[in-house]
């Protein structure tokens, strides 16, 4: 408990030191205000921006798109991973695709998706989904590989069907890996959604950031960037916490 507190304190101090340095550099004029506002200014702008409510739609759109993309990536990824794991040949065939997937700039397909689906939410969601799903498939395969064989035998002695085996034995046994996959899916999906809005969209946080950027509107751009970071970090640390609890329960961590 004591060490946990100290750790948290250290993290806060590092964050404060970093912001402090930025603050000093801005005040000294080393960073000029056209490039970046001082941190305290960004914070004030953020409060103002959230208070005004003028970006609520954009925020809601981006977050819900990212959430849909993440959920789809996780569900499709776990199901596909479980199926592929059962078919050795399919897995061997897809292995190369999976290992080179992240070398392919998925974002390059965005214009194509817009041609197909129009300038709706769908192309953004698809990009987020495509970014996240392969990470989930790969971690699912990895996790299922590590399920002890004795647990699969146990499932048979307990007369479990294929679905029951997955639900009661293999997926829970692979849960630490699945959570790792979920963490990646969140990050990749947010990146995918925001980046696609950056390229071409009618609304969303990515769109607002790029719009502000084009208009040298730092009072809007930086707070929005901070907001994206805050969301991403919050979701990730929640998942980390869950992961730690799970590991503790299984005796994998003190």
């Amino acid at each position: 408990m004591h060490t946990r507190w100290r750790l948290t304190l250290a993290r806060v101090l590092i964050l404060l030191a970093f912001t402090g340095i930025l603050e000093i550099l801005c005040a000294a004029g080393t960073i000029d205000p056209l490039t970046m506002q001082p941190p305290h200014r960004i914070l004030l702008d953020l409060v103002h921006l959230l208070g005004s409510g003028s970006f609520n739609r954009a925020i809601a759109r981006t977050l819900s798109n990212a959430m849909i993309a993440t959920s789809m990536a996780i569900i499709v990824g776990v199901v596909a991973g479980s199926l592929i794991h059962r078919i050795r040949g399919l897995r061997d065939a897809l292995d190369l695709l999976f290992s080179t997937w992240y070398a392919v700039p998925v974002l390059a397909f965005y214009p194509l998706l817009i041609v197909i689906f129009g300038l709706t939410n769908l192309p953004s969601i698809m990009i987020g989904f495509m970014q996240g799903v392969v990470a989930v498939i790969v971690t699912t395969l990895d996790g299922l590989d590590r399920v002890p064989r004795v647990l699969r035998k146990l499932a048979r002695t307990q007369h479990m069907t294929t679905l029951e085996t997955a639900w009661l034995i293999t997926l829970p046994a692979a849960a630490p890996w699945l959570l790792g996959g979920a963490k990646l899916a969140v990050v990749f999906s947010i990146i995918g959604v925001v980046a696609s809005e950056f390229l071409m969209a009618r609304e969303g946080m990515g769109f607002e950031i790029s719009y502000a950027y084009n208009n040298f509107d730092n009072a809007r751009m930086y707070p929005l960037i901070v907001l994206v970071i805050v969301f991403s970090v919050t979701v990730n640390s929640l998942l980390l916490r869950w992961e730690a609890r799970l590991a503790r329960r299984r005796g994998l961590k003190p």
């Binding site: 004795v150 647990l151 035998k153 146990l154 002695t157 046994a173 299984r250």
Partner: peptide, 12 residues
């Protein structure tokens, strides 16, 4: 009923 040599408790 079957009891295995390896630990087959479900840790969760």
């Amino acid at each position: 009923g079957v009891v295995f040599q390896e630990d087959s408790c479900l840790p969760w």
